[in-house]
């Protein structure tokens, strides 16, 4: 059942081909600009925070590929249905509400990982010497991406549910988006942050979305370290998904009180 829902999510997004190409161009352009800034820095310093210039360039192009699959610019699918009232029919369906949306989001993410995630990396590899992930790290990377999506989805689910209480969640959501982009290491790798900022960023769930999978991709977490990384991501995913369920429970009680 959830598989069917996921397939629907996949298909819904695969209809817009021209927009996909346009998006890949834009992500690549941004990656290029970031790449030049990083090259200028690494020309003066060979190593920063365990990164060399090749790590940093690889990181930049792969992280641009994470933006769309992880919906890092914001996602308002549930909020729209709350605003229009269609949400009522979603809540009456005989499936788990959170599970339904997660399956739908999984389909979307899989499509975007293929259409928007891989191409910027290929473009980058044409112009710069990028690092290929160690073969041993690939299965860990795949699991890490799925867990990253779970954390990303759980956070978006929570912000969308806020729309049951406040009229316009887009303002708070945009603030969250920017915090996520910065502390999640998309604007600049967390490895380049000053010490205290890096510690803060690593203590928050945002690092689990892109930074940790990217570090696995670069082979920064070999052996047992990989399991620790996955455990951190899994813990955040579980905690935030459960928080989402708790808030959903509150929503259901609130709606019942209002006679919906």
């Amino acid at each position: 059942m959830y598989w069917e829902v996921a397939k629907r999510g996949f298909r819904r997004y695969s209809t817009y081909r021209a927009a996909t190409v346009a998006g890949v161009v834009t992500n690549s352009v941004f990656a290029f600009i970031r790449a030049y800034i990083l090259i200028a820095i690494f020309r003066q310093r060979a190593h920063i925070g365990g990164f060399d210039v090749r790590d940093a360039l690889t990181y930049t192009f792969v992280s641009q590929g994470f933006l769309m699959p992880m919906a890092m610019f914001g996602w308002y699918d549930i909020e729209q249905r709350v605003r229009t009232g269609d949400i009522v029919s979603d809540l009456y369906r005989p499936v788990d509400f959170q599970g339904y949306w997660f399956a739908l989001d999984g389909g979307r993410a899989l499509y975007q990982a293929m259409a928007r995630g891989v191409p910027p990396v290929l473009v980058g590899a044409v112009f710069f010497s990028l690092r290929a992930p160690p073969v041993a790290a690939l299965p860990v990377f795949a699991v890490s991406c799925v867990l990253g999506l779970a954390v990303s989805f759980a956070l978006r689910f929570l912000t969308n549910l806020l729309s049951f209480w406040i009229i316009d969640v887009r303002g708070p959501a945009q603030v969250l988006v920017m915090v996520e982009l910065f502390l999640g290491g998309v604007v600049l790798p967390i490895a380049l942050f000053p010490r205290t900022l890096e510690v803060l960023a690593r203590a928050l769930p945002f690092a689990s979305i892109a930074q940790l999978p990217l570090e696995v991709y670069l082979g920064k977490h070999p052996g047992v370290d990989a399991l620790t990384t996955l455990a951190v991501q899994a813990a955040w995913a579980a905690a935030l998904l459960l928080a989402g369920r708790a808030v959903l429970g509150a929503v259901m009680r609130k709606l019942a009180v209002q006679g919906g």
Binding site: I166, R170, G171, Q174
Partner: peptide
Amino acid sequence: ASFALFSVG
């Protein structure tokens, strides 16, 4: 409130 948060965003 929405306007203020949007501006902050």
